[in-house]
Amino acid sequence: MIWELILIIALLYLASIVLFTIIAFKGPTLGDQVLAIDAITYATIVLMVLFSIYFKEPILTVVVIPLALWVYALDIYMAKYLEKGDLGA
């Protein structure tokens, strides 16, 4: 019961990743693309945790914390580039 439900939910997250990737490819402005990359990463985090339960290998969970942290770095880079025109380095 639990394992089939996890697979079906993983399919829902896969569908949402595909839809977000379409927006990330053709977004009209730069901001739309950055928002779509954020959403792709947050869906990927939940997908990875679900398959870490499904494969019964807890060491695979380590990946998700750097994933959540580095996408925030990408946000800050793009915000500073859009606001000032350079990164100040």
Binding site: T21, A24, F25, L30, Q33, V34, I37, I40, T41, T44, L47, M48, F51, I59, L60, V62, V63, P66, L67, W70, L74, M78
Partner: peptide, 29 residues
């Protein structure tokens, strides 16, 4: 640059399902 970031995010899923979380930890930053 943003398209390259999308590509690396999708490669992260590939490396994860190929059972290489150490490569994900190096490739992602």
């Amino acid at each position: 640059v943003l398209y390259s970031a999308i590509q690396s995010g999708l490669y992260t899923i590939l490396y994860y399902f190929l059972m290489a979380p150490d490569i994900v930890l190096v490739y992602l930053p």
